[in-house]
């Protein structure tokens, strides 16, 4: 996320003495938190991913260095991996399409309704994630009006929405939408309206002004929003669990089943690690590409 910070160009001059102590003390609470809740589980997880099963006793493992856990897990579950990234990618794209006009409206046109609209964006988060997804089960139910409507138009390949990939993607899009809207709003709200006037003054129509001024200036928000949507959506399992069929299982569901049902801890841990690594690589490539040319 470092690339998302506005680059100031000029670095403040701090005297060496001043910089020395205070900064580290301020870091202390955060570092402690990270050590306890991230670093230790991280190491444990890594060690677990290399454990070997105890012969004849299911669910029991001994410390080992069984690297083959990784290829084994990948060979078995690569379709779910792929599916996760595809679902998350589509959901992120949809969320961007929905969120951008909305954030644009709130930032530039909402006037005194701005605060209210922002509250409305966040309001659903007051209900639990699980509950909201359950609600979508009802909304997309086979007898529900949405399904009936699309069926009347003969638009649904399986004559239903619930328990299809459409439902999973819709759920992901809905659940992570606020994480797309808020960074977009923050970026758009910072765009100086005088720049838009200057662009109009310099022979750019409204559309060209959007393409050449507003959009480039909102890119930090686009990058932040897509990351905040894509990353959690990839690892999510609740939407696939509640809204999808067994064919729509994402990698999160696989990890969960391996941990809870099969008690295959090494495989589940290995999958978690691969997921983390792939996301990291994707995110870095993305930020570097976005960062080189377009980010201010």
């Amino acid at each position: 996320m470092v690339a998302l910070l506005p680059s100031t160009g000029v670095k403040p001059q701090v005297s060496p003495q001043k910089r020395s102590r205070t900064g580290y003390f301020l870091l202390l609470p955060g570092m402690t938190w990270l050590a306890i809740f991230f670093a230790i589980p991280f190491v444990t997880l890594f060690l677990t991913s290399l454990q070997a099963p105890v012969a004849g006793k299911s669910g029991q493992y001994v410390p080992a260095f069984q690297v083959s856990n990784y290829p084994d897990a990948l060979i078995e579950y690569w379709p779910q991996f792929l599916k996760s990234f595809i679902y998350a990618g589509i959901a992120t794209a949809l969320a961007l399409l929905i969120a951008y006009p909305l954030a644009y409206f709130i930032a530039f046109k909402a006037g005194r309704w701005r605060a209210l609209m922002l509250v409305l964006v966040i309001a659903p988060s007051f209900a639990s994630f699980l509950l909201r997804t359950y609600a979508w089960k009802t909304i997309l139910a086979d007898e529900g009006f949405i399904t009936s409507f699309f069926n009347a138009l003969h638009l649904l390949p399986d004559d239903r929405i619930l328990n299809t990939s459409i439902a999973v993607i819709a759920g992901l899009t809905y659940n992570f939408l606020p994480f797309m809207i808020l960074p977009l709003y923050a970026a758009l709200e910072k765009v100086d309206p005088r720049l838009i006037e200057a662009s109009n003054d310099l022979y750019a129509s409204a559309f060209t002004t959007f393409r050449k001024v507003t959009w480039p200036l909102s890119l930090p928000g686009v990058v932040a929003g897509t990351l905040l949507t894509f990353i959690p959506a990839t690892g999510d399992y609740i939407n696939a669990e509640l809204l999808g069929s067994t064919q729509d299982r994402m990698i999160g569901n696989v990890i969960q089943t391996n941990f809870i049902e099969f008690r295959d801890y090494p495989t589940a841990s290995a999958l978690s690690f691969v997921l983390m690594a792939v996301i990291l690589v994707l995110v870095f490539t993305y930020i570097r590409r976005a960062g080189t040319e377009d980010l201010v």
Binding site: D192, L195, A198, N200, D201, L202, A204
Partner: peptide
């Protein structure tokens, strides 16, 4: 505005 043969130097400059 974008159709007029007129250009402005803004007080705040408004550089992109």
């Amino acid at each position: 505005a974008f159709q007029r043969p007129v250009n402005t130097v803004f007080q705040s400059y408004a550089l992109f």
